[in-house]
Amino acid sequence: MKKNDLKSMGKSFTKYILIIGALLILLDFTFHRHEYFSFAEIYGFPAFFGFVSFVFIVMLGKWLRKFLMRKEDYYDQ
């Protein structure tokens, strides 16, 4: 029972976020979004940039563990 709580919350959260995401992309087609830089005015550019940046940050961070991660008591040794 308890396990379903978080799972169902996660599922409905995902659903709403996807709906909002879709709406935001659709909105982009209804008006001309002014930006400081013309290439950022391409449809869905901030969305694409956000998605790619996020994945990049997490993946690079994960990779950096190879170099930066030590045992918890590293400084006590």
């Binding site: 976020i17 995401g21 979004r33 550019f45 901030p46 956000g50 996020f54 994945v55 997490v58």
Partner: peptide
């Protein structure tokens, strides 16, 4: 507002995806 929301919402979608 739209630009910022797109960035944030799609970053959250990226999180859910990962």
């Amino acid at each position: 507002v739209i630009s910022q929301l797109q960035l944030l919402v799609f970053a959250i979608i990226a999180f859910l995806f990962l």
